[in-house]
């Protein structure tokens, strides 16, 4: 955390620009489980992105590419709203690929 600023350096009434705000790592107090997406099932409907309360769904342009461990708190909302069952919750200790995504057809399972 950066040092606290004196009153003279605060905008009147505390108006905040996006650049003023720190990004706190809320993912550090995740519940002990994390989502794992199966890209071979994913239809890219982006409901998870729409519903995620913590902006933890990563997209590139309009394509789902995974989860952001910096913000994900393991709330399970994404798994609950996924209409094709492409997201399962796994324990924190489970070894997962980067961004917590895999392709089941590629893994041969």
């Amino acid at each position: 955390m950066s040092s606290l600023r004196p009153w003279q350096e605060l905008s009147p009434g505390g108006t905040i620009r996006p650049t003023d705000a720190e990004k706190p790592k809320t993912g550090s107090w995740r519940t002990g489980i994390k989502p794992l997406a199966d890209l071979s099932k994913c239809t890219n409907c982006l409901l998870c992105w729409l519903y995620c309360p913590d902006s933890a769904i990563l997209i590139e342009d309009t394509t789902f590419v995974g989860f952001d461990d910096y913000f994900c708190k393991g709330c399970e909302v994404c798994a609950a709203v996924c209409p094709v069952g492409a997201i399962e919750m796994v324990s924190e200790e489970t070894e997962t690929p980067e961004r917590w995504v895999m392709r089941s057809d590629e893994s041969g399972s």
Partner: peptide, 21 residues
């Protein structure tokens, strides 16, 4: 063009400074 947040939450860290303003 320059989006802002107004009506912020300020606790022990900033409430005193913002009232002192």
């Amino acid at each position: 063009e320059e989006v802002t947040t107004k009506g912020i939450f300020a606790l022990q860290d900033y409430y005193t400074e913002l009232r002192y303003q």
